[in-house]
Amino acid sequence: MCTLAGILSLSAVINLPPSESKSAVIASFSPWRIFTWGFLGLGTLISLGLFIKSQVTPDWSTRVETIIHTWHKTHSFLSSAYFCLSLALILLLGGLDYLMDVQRFPRMAYYIFLYVRLRPICLWLMAVTIISLILTFTYRWLTLSLRDFLPSNRASRAGAYCLLVVFAGTLVMWVNLLRDPIFFEDKSSLWLPMIFISIPVLFIGLFLIDRQGKSKTE
């Protein structure tokens, strides 16, 4: 999958028009373009090499998998940190892709030449990180049970209801804000009192949930 994503990204970069003649160094391509190709090409070759090696010698792939599995088991905190950083990278790349979109932000047209070169790298990196993140889940250091995500006593249930009410109110505000921003700015409306009521309700809810956590540790 990583190789496939790499090939797709590489083809996207290859299809771009040649660099400007003043910045060209080799075969009418700029150093930045050569770096882009090199980065994508190397990444694709590495994943292709790993794929071929694992198909030719299955023992080797089992051995590597055992090593990775043991690392995740023995270094649980580093493993968690790796997971968090991968997630952060995905969010960063996703955010960049959103902010670089010329349709949403017309001033990005000024950087369009960078955007078309960067986007394939961003998408490839994102694909590789998502795949590795899915693999991390398979090592099962994170056992998920639905029961853990539900309130366990009356106080926490009450807290959850408070939170849900405020959350619903916040969603209504967001919908109104995105639908009609001018209406929301009207000072005579009821939005401001709603915000002021929401804050104490939110904190009462969180306090009740926090007490549940404390009583558990005590």
């Binding site: 670089m100 932000f105 990005m108 000024y110």
Partner: peptide
């Protein structure tokens, strides 16, 4: 957030 399209 890149001032409306200057994130790069």
């Amino acid at each position: 957030l890149g001032r409306n399209g200057n994130v790069l």
